[in-house]
Design a protein around this nucleic acid. Structure first.
Length: 279
DNA sequence: CAAGAATCCTGTCAGC
DNA sequence: TGCTGACAGGATTCTT
Protein backbone atom coordinates (compact mmCIF):
# COMPACT_ATOMS: atom_id res chain seq x y z
CA UNK A 1 0.00 0.00 0.00
CA UNK A 2 2.24 2.57 1.08
CA UNK A 3 5.20 2.39 -1.24
CA UNK A 4 8.50 4.18 -0.82
CA UNK A 5 7.20 7.75 -1.29
CA UNK A 6 4.33 7.24 1.15
CA UNK A 7 6.60 5.64 3.72
CA UNK A 8 9.10 8.47 3.31
CA UNK A 9 6.30 10.99 3.87
CA UNK A 10 5.08 9.19 6.97
CA UNK A 11 8.62 8.90 8.31
CA UNK A 12 9.12 12.65 7.93
CA UNK A 13 5.88 13.30 9.76
CA UNK A 14 6.97 11.07 12.62
CA UNK A 15 10.36 12.74 12.73
CA UNK A 16 8.81 16.19 12.97
CA UNK A 17 6.64 15.16 15.88
CA UNK A 18 8.80 12.70 17.78
CA UNK A 19 12.48 13.42 17.29
CA UNK A 20 13.99 14.54 20.56
CA UNK A 21 10.84 13.78 22.53
CA UNK A 22 10.44 11.33 25.35
CA UNK A 23 7.70 8.71 25.20
CA UNK A 24 5.66 9.02 28.35
CA UNK A 25 3.39 6.04 27.73
CA UNK A 26 3.20 3.22 25.23
CA UNK A 27 0.42 0.72 24.96
CA UNK A 28 -0.16 -2.28 22.74
CA UNK A 29 -3.83 -2.96 22.07
CA UNK A 30 -3.40 -5.89 19.76
CA UNK A 31 -0.23 -7.86 19.12
CA UNK A 32 -1.23 -10.34 16.42
CA UNK A 33 -0.20 -8.45 13.31
CA UNK A 34 1.69 -9.97 10.35
CA UNK A 35 4.21 -11.01 12.95
CA UNK A 36 3.41 -10.81 16.63
CA UNK A 37 4.63 -7.62 18.27
CA UNK A 38 7.52 -8.40 20.63
CA UNK A 39 6.37 -8.88 24.22
CA UNK A 40 8.74 -6.20 25.53
CA UNK A 41 7.67 -3.51 23.06
CA UNK A 42 5.61 -1.30 25.36
CA UNK A 43 8.20 -1.52 28.13
CA UNK A 44 11.03 -0.69 25.74
CA UNK A 45 9.19 2.38 24.48
CA UNK A 46 7.93 3.73 27.77
CA UNK A 47 10.32 6.36 29.07
CA UNK A 48 12.56 6.17 26.01
CA UNK A 49 13.86 9.25 24.25
CA UNK A 50 13.58 9.28 20.45
CA UNK A 51 16.97 9.92 18.90
CA UNK A 52 16.07 9.92 15.22
CA UNK A 53 14.55 8.26 12.17
CA UNK A 54 15.60 6.48 9.05
CA UNK A 55 13.76 4.83 6.16
CA UNK A 56 14.95 1.68 4.42
CA UNK A 57 12.80 0.44 1.52
CA UNK A 58 9.23 0.50 2.88
CA UNK A 59 10.38 0.22 6.48
CA UNK A 60 10.61 2.99 9.07
CA UNK A 61 13.27 2.76 11.77
CA UNK A 62 12.75 4.84 14.91
CA UNK A 63 15.97 4.98 16.91
CA UNK A 64 15.81 5.24 20.66
CA UNK A 65 18.51 6.59 22.94
CA UNK A 66 18.69 3.15 24.51
CA UNK A 67 20.44 1.73 21.46
CA UNK A 68 17.32 -0.08 20.28
CA UNK A 69 15.47 0.74 17.07
CA UNK A 70 11.77 0.22 16.42
CA UNK A 71 11.18 -1.29 12.98
CA UNK A 72 7.81 -0.37 11.50
CA UNK A 73 6.19 -1.77 8.38
CA UNK A 74 2.83 -0.41 7.26
CA UNK A 75 1.81 -3.38 5.15
CA UNK A 76 -1.11 -2.70 2.83
CA UNK A 77 -3.37 -0.67 5.07
CA UNK A 78 -1.12 0.75 7.78
CA UNK A 79 -1.36 4.40 8.79
CA UNK A 80 0.01 6.62 11.49
CA UNK A 81 -2.45 8.91 13.23
CA UNK A 82 -1.18 11.85 15.24
CA UNK A 83 -3.32 13.98 17.51
CA UNK A 84 -3.44 15.62 20.91
CA UNK A 85 -3.02 13.26 23.87
CA UNK A 86 -5.86 12.56 26.22
CA UNK A 87 -8.50 10.99 24.00
CA UNK A 88 -10.15 8.15 25.90
CA UNK A 89 -11.33 6.13 22.95
CA UNK A 90 -8.88 3.98 21.06
CA UNK A 91 -9.55 4.44 17.34
CA UNK A 92 -10.72 1.36 15.45
CA UNK A 93 -7.81 -0.89 14.44
CA UNK A 94 -5.25 1.11 16.38
CA UNK A 95 -2.83 -1.52 17.63
CA UNK A 96 -0.12 0.60 19.23
CA UNK A 97 -0.40 4.02 20.91
CA UNK A 98 2.39 6.30 22.09
CA UNK A 99 2.09 9.47 24.12
CA UNK A 100 4.86 12.04 24.19
CA UNK A 101 6.11 14.27 26.96
CA UNK A 102 4.81 17.30 25.09
CA UNK A 103 1.23 16.13 24.85
CA UNK A 104 0.81 14.25 21.57
CA UNK A 105 -0.46 10.80 20.84
CA UNK A 106 0.81 8.73 17.95
CA UNK A 107 -1.17 5.70 16.84
CA UNK A 108 -0.32 2.82 14.53
CA UNK A 109 -3.52 1.85 12.74
CA UNK A 110 -3.72 -1.15 10.43
CA UNK A 111 -7.09 -2.74 9.61
CA UNK A 112 -5.75 -5.63 7.55
CA UNK A 113 -2.91 -6.31 9.97
CA UNK A 114 -0.39 -7.02 7.20
CA UNK A 115 1.95 -4.55 8.89
CA UNK A 116 4.30 -5.22 11.74
CA UNK A 117 6.45 -3.64 14.44
CA UNK A 118 9.63 -5.14 15.80
CA UNK A 119 12.69 -4.23 17.84
CA UNK A 120 16.26 -4.42 16.56
CA UNK A 121 19.61 -3.21 17.93
CA UNK A 122 20.41 0.13 16.28
CA UNK A 123 23.95 -0.95 15.43
CA UNK A 124 22.62 -4.02 13.61
CA UNK A 125 19.51 -2.64 11.90
CA UNK A 126 20.41 -3.92 8.48
CA UNK A 127 20.97 -7.42 9.79
CA UNK A 128 17.30 -7.75 10.73
CA UNK A 129 15.81 -10.60 8.75
CA UNK A 130 13.32 -8.27 7.07
CA UNK A 131 16.06 -5.92 5.88
CA UNK A 132 18.89 -8.33 5.16
CA UNK A 133 17.78 -9.34 1.66
CA UNK A 134 16.82 -5.92 0.33
CA UNK A 135 18.30 -4.54 -2.87
CA UNK A 136 19.69 -1.02 -3.33
CA UNK A 137 17.83 2.14 -2.34
CA UNK A 138 16.53 3.54 -5.61
CA UNK A 139 17.12 7.19 -4.71
CA UNK A 140 20.71 6.65 -3.58
CA UNK A 141 23.75 6.92 -5.81
CA UNK A 142 24.32 3.18 -5.40
CA UNK A 143 21.34 2.49 -7.68
CA UNK A 144 22.88 2.71 -11.14
CA UNK A 145 22.08 1.21 -14.54
CA UNK A 146 24.97 -1.19 -14.08
CA UNK A 147 23.59 -2.36 -10.74
CA UNK A 148 20.09 -2.82 -12.10
CA UNK A 149 21.41 -4.58 -15.19
CA UNK A 150 23.32 -7.05 -13.08
CA UNK A 151 20.18 -7.76 -11.04
CA UNK A 152 18.06 -8.36 -14.16
CA UNK A 153 20.50 -10.24 -16.34
CA UNK A 154 19.36 -13.74 -17.19
CA UNK A 155 16.04 -13.49 -15.42
CA UNK A 156 13.07 -14.87 -17.32
CA UNK A 157 10.35 -13.40 -15.17
CA UNK A 158 8.44 -10.37 -16.50
CA UNK A 159 10.12 -7.04 -15.74
CA UNK A 160 7.02 -6.06 -13.75
CA UNK A 161 7.57 -8.93 -11.33
CA UNK A 162 11.33 -8.37 -11.17
CA UNK A 163 10.87 -4.74 -10.12
CA UNK A 164 8.32 -5.68 -7.47
CA UNK A 165 10.93 -8.05 -6.04
CA UNK A 166 12.45 -6.08 -3.17
CA UNK A 167 15.76 -7.82 -3.71
CA UNK A 168 16.11 -6.23 -7.15
CA UNK A 169 15.54 -2.70 -5.94
CA UNK A 170 14.00 -1.78 -2.60
CA UNK A 171 10.82 0.19 -2.09
CA UNK A 172 8.95 -0.01 -5.40
CA UNK A 173 5.38 -1.29 -5.30
CA UNK A 174 2.60 -1.84 -7.79
CA UNK A 175 1.89 1.83 -8.49
CA UNK A 176 5.40 3.07 -9.12
CA UNK A 177 6.48 0.05 -11.11
CA UNK A 178 3.58 0.64 -13.49
CA UNK A 179 4.38 4.34 -13.71
CA UNK A 180 8.12 3.91 -14.29
CA UNK A 181 7.55 1.32 -17.02
CA UNK A 182 5.07 3.62 -18.74
CA UNK A 183 7.52 6.51 -18.65
CA UNK A 184 10.20 4.41 -20.30
CA UNK A 185 7.79 2.75 -22.74
CA UNK A 186 8.87 -0.71 -21.60
CA UNK A 187 6.20 -3.41 -21.64
CA UNK A 188 5.53 -4.89 -18.21
CA UNK A 189 5.46 -8.30 -19.92
CA UNK A 190 8.96 -8.04 -21.34
CA UNK A 191 11.33 -10.57 -19.81
CA UNK A 192 13.53 -8.95 -17.18
CA UNK A 193 16.73 -10.22 -18.75
CA UNK A 194 16.05 -8.23 -21.91
CA UNK A 195 15.96 -4.98 -19.93
CA UNK A 196 19.54 -5.43 -18.75
CA UNK A 197 21.92 -3.25 -20.73
CA UNK A 198 20.79 -0.21 -22.70
CA UNK A 199 17.19 -0.24 -21.52
CA UNK A 200 18.28 -0.09 -17.89
CA UNK A 201 19.65 3.43 -18.35
CA UNK A 202 16.35 5.26 -18.92
CA UNK A 203 14.58 2.88 -16.53
CA UNK A 204 16.83 3.82 -13.62
CA UNK A 205 16.31 7.50 -14.42
CA UNK A 206 12.54 7.06 -14.61
CA UNK A 207 12.40 5.20 -11.30
CA UNK A 208 14.36 7.94 -9.57
CA UNK A 209 12.28 10.70 -11.14
CA UNK A 210 8.93 9.09 -10.44
CA UNK A 211 9.77 8.46 -6.80
CA UNK A 212 11.24 11.93 -6.28
CA UNK A 213 8.18 13.60 -7.77
CA UNK A 214 5.87 11.50 -5.65
CA UNK A 215 7.76 12.37 -2.47
CA UNK A 216 7.64 16.04 -3.40
CA UNK A 217 3.87 15.72 -3.77
CA UNK A 218 3.50 13.89 -0.47
CA UNK A 219 2.72 10.46 -1.88
CA UNK A 220 -0.20 9.06 -3.82
CA UNK A 221 -2.70 8.18 -1.19
CA UNK A 222 -5.29 5.89 -2.67
CA UNK A 223 -8.32 5.16 -0.57
CA UNK A 224 -7.40 4.32 2.99
CA UNK A 225 -3.93 5.74 3.10
CA UNK A 226 -3.64 9.03 5.00
CA UNK A 227 -0.59 10.98 6.03
CA UNK A 228 0.42 11.48 9.59
CA UNK A 229 -1.21 14.89 9.47
CA UNK A 230 -4.44 13.47 8.06
CA UNK A 231 -4.09 15.01 4.61
CA UNK A 232 -4.23 13.08 1.41
CA UNK A 233 -1.25 12.92 -0.92
CA UNK A 234 -1.46 14.69 -4.23
CA UNK A 235 0.64 12.49 -6.50
CA UNK A 236 -2.36 10.39 -7.49
CA UNK A 237 -3.29 13.30 -9.74
CA UNK A 238 -0.04 12.72 -11.60
CA UNK A 239 -0.44 8.97 -12.14
CA UNK A 240 -0.40 8.27 -15.87
CA UNK A 241 -1.61 4.69 -15.98
CA UNK A 242 -2.19 3.23 -12.52
CA UNK A 243 -5.91 2.84 -11.88
CA UNK A 244 -6.75 4.34 -15.27
CA UNK A 245 -8.02 1.31 -17.16
CA UNK A 246 -9.86 2.36 -20.29
CA UNK A 247 -8.78 5.98 -20.14
CA UNK A 248 -6.89 7.54 -23.01
CA UNK A 249 -3.14 7.12 -22.79
CA UNK A 250 -1.47 10.51 -22.93
CA UNK A 251 1.04 9.38 -25.54
CA UNK A 252 -1.59 8.09 -27.94
CA UNK A 253 -4.13 9.87 -30.11
CA UNK A 254 -6.73 7.28 -29.12
CA UNK A 255 -8.64 4.77 -31.24
CA UNK A 256 -8.08 3.15 -33.60
CA UNK A 257 -4.35 3.17 -32.85
CA UNK A 258 -4.66 2.67 -29.12
CA UNK A 259 -7.50 1.32 -27.02
CA UNK A 260 -6.34 3.31 -24.01
CA UNK A 261 -4.81 2.13 -20.78
CA UNK A 262 -5.07 -1.63 -20.36
CA UNK A 263 -5.27 -3.68 -17.21
CA UNK A 264 -3.85 -7.18 -17.04
CA UNK A 265 -3.02 -9.44 -14.12
CA UNK A 266 0.57 -10.53 -13.54
CA UNK A 267 1.40 -12.86 -10.69
CA UNK A 268 -1.90 -12.02 -9.10
CA UNK A 269 -1.54 -8.24 -9.23
CA UNK A 270 -3.05 -5.67 -11.55
CA UNK A 271 -0.76 -4.11 -14.11
CA UNK A 272 -1.74 -0.97 -16.02
CA UNK A 273 -0.01 -0.04 -19.26
CA UNK A 274 -0.32 1.18 -22.82
CA UNK A 275 -0.31 -1.74 -25.23
CA UNK A 276 0.75 0.41 -28.17
CA UNK A 277 3.72 2.41 -26.90
CA UNK A 278 5.14 0.09 -24.27
CA UNK A 279 7.21 -2.60 -26.01
C1' DC B 1 16.28 -22.96 -8.89
C1' DA B 2 12.96 -19.91 -10.28
C1' DA B 3 8.27 -18.52 -11.27
C1' DG B 4 3.52 -18.34 -10.09
C1' DA B 5 -0.25 -19.27 -6.76
C1' DA B 6 -2.02 -19.14 -2.30
C1' DT B 7 -2.13 -16.81 1.87
C1' DC B 8 -2.73 -13.58 5.81
C1' DC B 9 -7.11 -9.79 7.05
C1' DT B 10 -10.56 -6.09 6.68
C1' DG B 11 -12.77 -2.47 4.10
C1' DT B 12 -14.82 -0.53 0.02
C1' DC B 13 -17.12 -0.32 -4.12
C1' DA B 14 -19.79 -1.90 -8.21
C1' DG B 15 -23.57 -4.44 -9.64
C1' DC B 16 -27.76 -6.67 -8.96
C1' DT C 1 -31.29 -0.72 1.29
C1' DG C 2 -28.89 -5.09 1.39
C1' DC C 3 -26.34 -8.80 -0.36
C1' DT C 4 -22.34 -10.75 -3.11
C1' DG C 5 -18.15 -10.85 -5.30
C1' DA C 6 -14.05 -8.57 -6.90
C1' DC C 7 -10.35 -6.09 -5.57
C1' DA C 8 -6.90 -3.26 -2.74
C1' DG C 9 -0.64 0.05 -1.69
C1' DG C 10 2.76 -6.10 0.59
C1' DA C 11 5.65 -9.92 1.18
C1' DT C 12 6.25 -14.59 2.84
C1' DT C 13 5.50 -19.43 2.14
C1' DC C 14 3.92 -23.15 -0.47
C1' DT C 15 3.55 -25.56 -5.12
C1' DT C 16 4.74 -26.61 -9.59
Amino acid sequence: MPELPEVETVMRGLRARLEGRTIRHARVHRADLRWALPPGLAAELTGARVAGFRRRAKYILMRLDSGTSVLIHLGMSGRILIGPAGAREVPLHEHLTLETDDGWRVGFVDPRRFGSVDLVPTDAEDSHRLLAGLGPEPLEAEFTPAVLSAALAGRRTPIKAALLDQGTVAGLGNIYVCEALFRTAISPRRLAGTVAGARAVPLVAAIKQTLAEAIAAGGSSLRSYVHTDGELGRFQLALKVYGREGEACERCPGPPGCAGVRRIVQSGRSTFYCGRTQR
